[in-house]
Simulated assay, not measured.
Amino acid sequence: MKKDIDFSPVKNVHVVIAKNDEAWKVFIINRNQAKLENVMVTSRGYGETKTEKQQTTVLRHMIPYIESGMYALIEPIDESVFHLNNEYWVSYFIDGQVYDKKFIFVPDSIIEENLIFIEELEMKGIFHD
């Protein structure tokens, strides 16, 4: 049962929304000393305007592993959803232990003014801890 699973806190794993010359993209970065295995990411957007609720389709991504100090592309992201909460629910294993965390980019936080240089990607992006 879920209550019997030890969900240790996530450390040194980050989700980044970065922009290059072509487009915005979402990455996961592993800054752990260990490899992440069986990385599962679900992504969705949700929110509401003054008149209606909005949500995107839930997408699921499987990444077999991410080595220590490396990153992986999760998905491209379109600017038309930046006004929504953009949620990335990340689950993975390190040495048989499961880790699980939601990373939520709040509405209108994905803007040029919030970009910082992300060393691993060698590009600017929005860094989520």
Rank of each mutant, 00 (worst) to 15 (best):
M1D: 09
K3A: 02
D4W: 06
D4C: 01
D4P: 00
D4S: 10
D6I: 00
D6F: 06
D6M: 00
D6K: 08
F7D: 05
P9L: 04
P9F: 03
K11L: 08
K11C: 02
N12E: 13
V15L: 09
K19L: 00
K19F: 03
N20D: 15
N20S: 12
E22W: 12
E22C: 01
A23G: 00
F27K: 05
I29W: 00
N30W: 07
N32A: 00
Q33A: 06
A34C: 04
A34T: 05
A34M: 04
K35D: 10
V39T: 05
M40P: 01
T42L: 08
S43T: 15
R44M: 04
Y46A: 12
Y46R: 04
Y46F: 15
G47W: 02
E48Q: 15
E48G: 15
T49I: 11
K50H: 06
K53L: 11
K53W: 13
Q54P: 00
Q54C: 13
Q55D: 04
T56Q: 08
T57A: 12
V58M: 05
V58G: 02
L59P: 03
R60Q: 10
R60L: 04
R60M: 11
H61L: 09
H61F: 14
I63E: 05
Y65F: 14
S68E: 01
G69T: 02
Y71Q: 11
Y71G: 06
L73Q: 11
I74M: 07
I74S: 02
E75W: 05
I77E: 02
E79P: 01
E79D: 09
S80A: 11
V81A: 10
F82I: 14
N85P: 05
N86E: 11
N86Y: 02
E87R: 03
W89A: 14
V90D: 04
Y92P: 07
F93I: 03
I94K: 14
Q97D: 13
K101P: 01
K102Q: 12
F105E: 03
P107W: 03
P107L: 09
D108S: 06
S109H: 13
I110P: 01
I111S: 03
I111D: 02
I111M: 09
F117R: 13
I118Q: 09
I118H: 05
E119Q: 14
E120M: 08
L121E: 09
E122S: 07
E122R: 09
E122I: 03
K124E: 15
F127P: 01
